[in-house]
């Protein structure tokens, strides 16, 4: 059974702006799925339609086989949503916000209270749980929205840029939390601008641009499309001139940094053999840019050219 099945989804706003064009998307149960795209590509509109905040123009959306037009309540009960913008009352306490959300999903207050305490604790918010939500920091507000989305224990969690504006340490702890939730069987759909985040977390991916899905595949498959990778190498001792590295394209950036392009069919061990033969010692090595970022930009560029 699919967790989410979208067919021929179209959305035209009253000002005639076409936000979605024949979008087709399928997310398997238990998946950790990334929906990527530039600003204004249609990610939030898609999510808005799935969770009932945006009226679709045409097409069908099924959540765990519940059609949002026919069986709206059952469909909604399956998903928890963490939106891009802060959307809770700043005057209420985190505890009330989470418990009330449980109530909206028909969870008894006594149960909702226990779950709220559990999730607020797991997300490091328990000490702030009885303070007005306006006192929370930006990162805490985002975590509060995750706790709120989980209170009814949904089968699927949809997160629209959950780590936007969150510091690195906190982002990593949110990743760990989401990985754990996914391992417990919750299907996760994520949009993000941090491509490293998508690469790190997600098994499958779709890229949307100008309202159309331009790629929908597994992360592994997508990354295998890379024809070459560029690495940056830091040297232990400075060198004045870069010797010839047969079969590799390399540039000396400065006396202790070399940038090397490695084609997919090349063996990286050969590169190090060449370095050793020239008495060049490497102390560290990294990708010049995120691999997914490179593919993402290439796909968008190709899509622009095709149009």
């Amino acid at each position: 059974m699919s967790a989410l099945e979208i067919k021929n989804l179209n959305k035209v706003y009253p000002n005639k702006f076409v936000a979605l064009k024949e979008v087709e998307l399928n997310i398997n149960k238990g998946d950790f799925f990334a929906l990527l795209g530039p600003n204004g590509a249609g990610k939030s509109t898609t999510i808005g339609i799935i969770c009932g905040l945006v009226n679709k123009t045409s097409g069908s959306v099924k959540i765990f086989d519940h059609d949002i037009d026919i069986d709206k309540r059952a469909a909604k009960a399956c998903i928890g949503i963490v939106p891009q913008e802060i959307n809770f009352s700043q005057f209420e306490t985190p505890l009330d916000i989470v418990v009330n959300q449980g109530g909206y999903y028909g969870i008894k207050r006594s149960i909702a209270l226990k779950r709220a305490e559990k999730y607020l604790k797991q997300l490091g918010l328990i000490e702030k749980s009885k303070e007005p939500a306006r006192n929370l920091s930006g990162g805490m507000k985002r975590r509060l929205m995750i706790a709120r989305a989980l209170v009814h224990e949904p089968k699927m969690l949809i997160l629209d840029e959950p780590t936007a504006g969150v510091d690195v340490e906190l982002r990593r702890s949110m990743w760990d939390f989401l990985i754990d939730i996914n391992k417990q069987g919750v299907t996760i759909m994520l949009t993000t601008h941090y491509l490293e985040e998508a690469e790190m977390l997600c098994k499958n991916i779709a890229i949307i641009d100008q309202g159309s899905i331009i790629e929908n595949t597994s992360m592994k498959q997508l990354l295998s499309n890379l024809s070459k990778e560029t690495f940056v190498l830091d040297l232990i001792k400075p060198i004045k001139v870069l010797p010839g590295l047969n079969g590799f394209t390399a540039i000396l950036i400065d006396e202790t940094t070399i940038e090397v392009e490695v084609a997919r069919d090349k063996n990286i061990n050969d590169l190090f053999k060449l370095f050793s033969s020239h008495n060049i010692n490497v102390c560290s090595m990294r990708n010049k840019s995120n691999r997914l970022e490179k593919l993402f930009l290439d796909l968008l560029e190709n899509n622009q050219v095709a149009k």
Partner: peptide, 8 residues
Amino acid sequence: EEMLVAPI
């Protein structure tokens, strides 16, 4: 939106 996303 808290109410609109819920099955109410």
